[in-house]
Amino acid sequence: MEFPNHHRQIVEDLMAGKFILPTERTFEVLNENEEFYTQFFKASFNYDLKFSQDYIYMVSDESNEMLSRDICIFIALLSYELDRDGKNFLERIQYSEFEVEEIENYFTNSSYIDLILSTKQLKDAENRRNFINTLNRRNIIEKVGDNRFVFTSAHKFFMSFAADIVKFENVSE
């Protein structure tokens, strides 16, 4: 049986919980073989493959709630602090590099300090550094040096989640 190009890479990345990005060659292969891969992961692992123009990712019935929540808290706090600092947070997150030191400044001086301290992966500088590595492994950010990183287009997954909160709130109202 013949498999599409980069099949092994695709399976390994998706099984590792990575977001596949348009900049990767596997993104195109996945799009070209959407039906095959959707069925492949469903039949093999009962996982659902989700496609969008900015990322492709996989979800299972059992979600990594804790990591997902911590990522949301991280991006939410960063967005809030950037806005409070007079920055266009969407533009900054989408187009600019961040220094770990800058993140540290925002987190240590945040008015949400209680929430930060109660979130295990974000509570101190060392944990935050590890957390940034986790984001890197999941392709949510891309490290461009030891202390610098950029957000990938996968950040839009979390931004659209935030937008949905307002939409659903309005619907329920």
């Binding site: 949301c72 808290i73 991006i75 939410a76 706090l77 967005s79 809030y80 806005d83 266009n88 947070f89 969407l90 949400y112 929430l115 931004m159 989640f161 935030a162 937008a163 949905d164 909160i165 307002v166 939409k167 709130e169």
Partner: peptide, 13 residues
């Protein structure tokens, strides 16, 4: 869009 997202995050936080 910015306002919707930020409002969502503030609600979430």
């Amino acid at each position: 869009t910015e306002s919707i997202i930020l409002t969502g995050w503030i609600t979430y936080l």
